[in-house]
Each structure stands twice: as structure tokens, then as C-alpha cells.
Design a binder for these strands. Structure first.
Lengths: 235, 235
DNA sequence: GTCTATAAGATGATAGAC
DNA sequence: GTCTATCATCTTATAGAC
């Protein structure tokens, strides 16, 4: 229905229960449409702020169908969260690997951070509305106590560990604690940017746009690289 | 009930409708107890994840009383959010003013940022559980689309503008866009830290603790100051 | 696969007694 | 101030027809 999400790579389809529909609604995949609508609504109102009736209405189906595909409301949410996590993880690991292979011991903090944040901001900018919604959802989950932290850990820790491994090569004398704190600040900067809340636009009275993700990427790499170096007493 | 919130300054009491209770429950201020419980629950589950019945039960009163004091559920939420915002804004403006008065044109980026984040992390560390809940709540609201951004703007913009004004004095040649982007990254770092989600603890396998706010303050000032300088091409 | 019908309970809010 | 009682609505979820 709105999944024009085929820019950097190609999406997966880990549907809640089945894979192939065949008839009925004129579009290709009903489960996918449900996920798109759920993604949109969850990203705007959070898990508790959305009812499965709203999702069903937006998707043009009955609530019973959501239960058929995803079991429970939580099952629907998890399916939404998982769908793009795989794509994101693959692209980010690939970007970090490629960067290391290219530069070897010529790597810089800027380069590592750019490889880490690049795929995210790329999808957010060019992946269509679905990806924008997904990024906003991740931004919210990251700020949700207890289960939000656990969810982020479960899905995204490997990429973060890979990034930190590269950063250790760039700054061999860095203390471990400093690296972790610096990562936390980068994480906050990235997830807030993924929210595109429009706060920056209002604050700067239109001078900056939250949606200008090329600028965000450049500025964030510069800001965070300097931050890493300072905190880790390097350069 | 749990408001041992008298460390840096003293709290205000902008109760929803009345000021003075007189009899009934053995504690001093019923409305304040309701606010404490609502603050706790909202900070853990978000606005939609909490029912006024739960708040009433935790506070040991009937739901009708919540409506008596705060009108609607949204009214209750706003009262929670406003209660400590005044205290926070006063302290932060004061800290920035004091820093400028002390240092004049000897100010540094580190110093400005420390004055900006100091009062927040101070309350979070030493203000008791109520302040911890409040900080986690702000962290979530900051990541909430549309109304979250508007809420943050409404309550906290003056402090931010004051901080940016001082930063302009420290770095007179900085471009405005760069200042705003740098602020956004600092904001993300600060609000994520205010969440104390425990994510850092898990990621670092216990090496760093989210609740170690003295370290957070020191590292954040160092990280963000270097970031500001780099992005604004100064120093 | 998709829908109708409905169970079984929770929700925000109000009127009015004390 | 505080509670009891209640309304009208909405909630997730399931059974079963087509």
C-alpha cells in the first residue's frame, strides 16, 4: 500500500504466521499492509496509544484478521519491530566491514561513526514513509524504560559491539569506560535524530530541518568523533 | 509519601485546583501523593500505559478524587509534568547566570555545558525517587512525536536559548546552523542519560552504571564541548 | 483468508450522598 | 474532601460461518 521501500537493498517478509495470500484485497500482501499501518500508528502514539481496531480500520480489514496473522497485539508490535531490524543490522555490519577492509589501520573515528550511522540515516531519508515511521518507533522504544532497553539490547547489540571494536583499533589507548559512555552519547544523538520530532525546526525557527538527514549525518559524525577523541583523551 | 525532594532547593505546589487539605488521609497532602504515584506510573509506562484507576489505587484513593483535583487524565499528566519544570528551569537559568557572572569572557564550552546539565543531573542523583521518575518521564516525552516535541518546546525553550546565547559568546565565529545541530546532539545525549534505562549497564556488562551521574556529567561535558568546538570549527 | 457476532472485562468520566 | 454507584463506551480476544 505504501511500501516503496526498495532503495538501498531489499526488504524481507517474516510475516507473523503465513507467507502467501492469494485472493481478496486487491493488493499483493494483506499482512504486509497491516504491518505498514501498525508501524505508522505505533510510531505516532506508542504501543498503548494504539488499538488493534484502529490498525484494522486503517488496513481496511477486520480485527479478527490481525489476530489470525499475529496472535496478540504484542505479537503485532514485535512483528513490526523485527521486520526492518534484520535489514538494518545487515546493512550496518556490512558498512562497518567494508570500511575496515578499505582503510585497514588508516581508519578514523569519523569514518567508523559514519559507517555506523550511515545506513540508518540513508534508509530514513530514502526508504519511503515506512522507514521514517520505523525510525521514529525505534527512537521511542529506545527511551522506554525496562522493556525498551531490553528490546534495543536484544535487536541491536551486535552492531554496536562491532562499532566499538573498530573504535578500539582507532584509539588503542582508550579506557573501556570512556568508550561506553561516549557510545551512550552518540546513541542519544542518533536516536533523537531518528525521531524527526520537528523540535530542531521550531527551536531554530526554520534555520535547520530535522528531515535534512545529509546534514545530520555530516554534523553528527563530526560532533561525535570529536567527542570520542576528547573523552578517550586521544588526538 | 515519598517526596524526600529537598536537596538543591525547595519544591513548589501548583496543585491541580486547591492548595490546602485539612483532614482525611493521615499524610499532609493528598493531591501531592496522587501526583507522586502518577509520576511514578507515567514514567514507567507512558501516558497511555497508565489508567487513572491504577493511579488511584496506588495513592489509596478513589478515581473520583483524581477527577476532582485534576479534571481529566490529561490534566493529571500536565500537572505532573509542570510540577518540577519550574524548579528545574529556575535552577538551570540561575546556574547559567552564575557561571557567566563568575567567568565573564573566560567562559569555556565545557563550563557552559556543565552549567546547563548540572542542575538536572544533580536533582536526578540527589532529589529522591520522585525526581528520578520525573527525569525518566522527560526523557520519554522528548522522544514522543508531535505533542512531545511541542511539550518540550513549551516548557524548556527559554533555558536552551540562554545556553545557546552563552555558547555564542564562547564561539563568536560559529555558524547558527552548526550551533543548533550541536545542541540537538547534546539534547539527545542528555535525555537518554535522564532515562536511566540500564542499557549502558547491560552493554558494558556492569563496567558502567547508568545511575553514576557524577561520571555522566563529567563525561558528557567533555564529549559535548569537543563536539561543539568541532562542529563550529573552533579550537 | 476473511468476515460476523459476541464474550468478558476495562476505561474515562459524572452525579450525588456524606 | 472523599466516597459509592453508575453510564456509556471501548478494549482484546475467540468461536464459528462462509
Amino acid at each position: 500500500m505504501q511500501t516503496n521501500d526498495t532503495e538501498p537493498k531489499s526488504a524481507k517478509r517474516p510475516a507473523g504466521r503465513r507467507g502467501r495470500p492469494s485472493k481478496g484485497s486487491r493488493n499483493g500482501d494483506t499482512a504486509e499492509t497491516i504491518l505498514d499501518m501498525a508501524e505508522d500508528l505505533f510510531s505516532k502514539h506508542g504501543f498503548h496509544g494504539v488499538t488493534i481496531r484502529e490498525v484494522a480500520r486503517e488496513a481496511g480489514v477486520d480485527t479478527a484478521l490481525l489476530h489470525y496473522y499475529f496472535g496478540t497485539k504484542k505479537g503485532l508490535f514485535d512483528a513490526v519491530f523485527l521486520r526492518r531490524a534484520d535489514v538494518l543490522n545487515r546493512d550496518r555490519l556490512e558498512a562497518l566491514d567494508r570500511y575496515e577492509a578499505e582503510k585497514g589501520d588508516q581508519m578514523t573515528a569519523e569514518g567508523v561513526i559514519d559507517a555506523f550511522i550511515g545506513p540508518v540515516l540513508e534508509w530514513q531519508a530514502k526508504g519511503g514513509p515506512g522507514w521514517k515511521h520505523y525510525c521514529a518507533l525505534v527512537s521511542q522504544v529506545n527511551a522506554t524504560p525496562v522493556w525498551g532497553g531490553e528490546t534495543m539490547t536484544r535487536y541491536f547489540d551486535p552492531v554496536i559491539r562491532r562499532m566499538l571494536a573498530l573504535m578500539r583499533k582507532v584509539m588503542p589507548a582508550a579506557r573501556e569506560e570512556d568508550l561506553y559512555w561516549a557510545y551512550q552519547f552518540l546513541s542519544g544523538a542518533l536516536t533523537l535524530t531518528m525521531g524527526e520530532t520537528g523540535r530542531l525546526d521550531r527551536l531554530s525557527e526554520g534555520l535547520c530541518r530535522s528531515g535534512d538527514l545529509d546534514t545530520a549525518r555530516r554534523e553528527m559524525a563530526c560532533f561525535a568523533a570529536a567527542g570520542f577523541r576528547a573523552v578517550c583523551k586521544q588526538g
